[in-house]
Computed example of a mutant assay.
Amino acid sequence: MNLQLRVQYAAARAGLPARSSLQRWASTALRGLGRERVALGVRIVGVAESADLNRRFRRKHGPTNVLSFPFEAPSGTRSEVLGDLVICAPVVRREARAQRKPERAHWAHMVVHGILHLRGYDHLNRRDATVMEKKEIRILEELGFANPYLS
């Protein structure tokens, strides 16, 4: 599969994952999608932008780690675009410290988690959450990261 990845750094870039890492994590999370080509956007933001988007699109207060915006092509058309991820750098850093896990591992988890949402997975109920978490664990292990749900 050919991944066309567009990355926007809208937060201080120091310590953020390189485009090549985001590409690798995304490509692995997209395996088995059944498409020849996929276009995906990743925007890394600060607290204010994340909080604004979270309020506007999810009606939730405050910033969040990752938001997924799936793209739906108009009826009767085809598109390579899967959607966009918006990842909040300060939240990812804070969560990694709080969970005592490597920041790089948490970044990979947020990319994989967001892409699974774009692929239609969710965690609104326990059964769906279990399916999604097992897929996340398998993908992250393939990438060389530990199970993110073990504390």
Rank of each mutant, 00 (worst) to 15 (best):
V66D: 08
G34C: 03
Q99A: 15
E36M: 09
R138K: 12
F71S: 09
A14M: 02
R58L: 12
G46P: 08
S50D: 06
N54D: 07
P17W: 08
R13C: 12
E136K: 00
S75G: 07
R93N: 05
R138Y: 03
G34D: 06
L85E: 00
P70T: 11
H117L: 05
F145M: 06
V45N: 07
A48L: 07
S79G: 07
R35N: 01
S20P: 03
V7L: 10
V112A: 05
S20T: 15
S68F: 05
R35H: 10
A89Q: 03
R19L: 14
A18D: 14
N2A: 09
E72D: 13
I87W: 07
S75D: 13
R55K: 14
H106T: 06
I87T: 12
N54Q: 03
V38H: 08
E95V: 11
V112K: 05
V42E: 01
H113T: 08
E72P: 00
V81E: 11
A14N: 13
F71R: 06
I115P: 04
G76T: 05
A26W: 04
T130F: 08
N125W: 06
A11E: 15
D128S: 15
A89I: 13
G32I: 12
E141V: 06
A12S: 13
F69R: 10
A14T: 14
P102A: 14
V47A: 10
C88D: 06
S75I: 09
R58C: 11
V86E: 02
L40K: 03
L143H: 01
R126S: 15
T28F: 05
G15Y: 10
A48N: 12
R31D: 01
S27N: 00
L140F: 08
E133W: 09
Q4T: 10
I44Y: 02
R37P: 03
A108K: 08
L116R: 07
Y121I: 02
Q4G: 08
L53M: 11
D128Y: 02
D128V: 01
L16D: 04
E49G: 04
Y149G: 11
A39E: 13
L85Y: 03
T64K: 10
H113K: 02
R35F: 07
N125I: 05
G46N: 09
G62R: 02
A48I: 04
L40I: 09
P17Q: 02
N65H: 12
H61D: 12
S68A: 15
A129L: 09
R31G: 07
A48Y: 07
A14Q: 15
A14V: 08
V38C: 02
R35P: 07
R6E: 14
R24T: 09
A146V: 09
R127W: 15
D122C: 09
A18I: 08
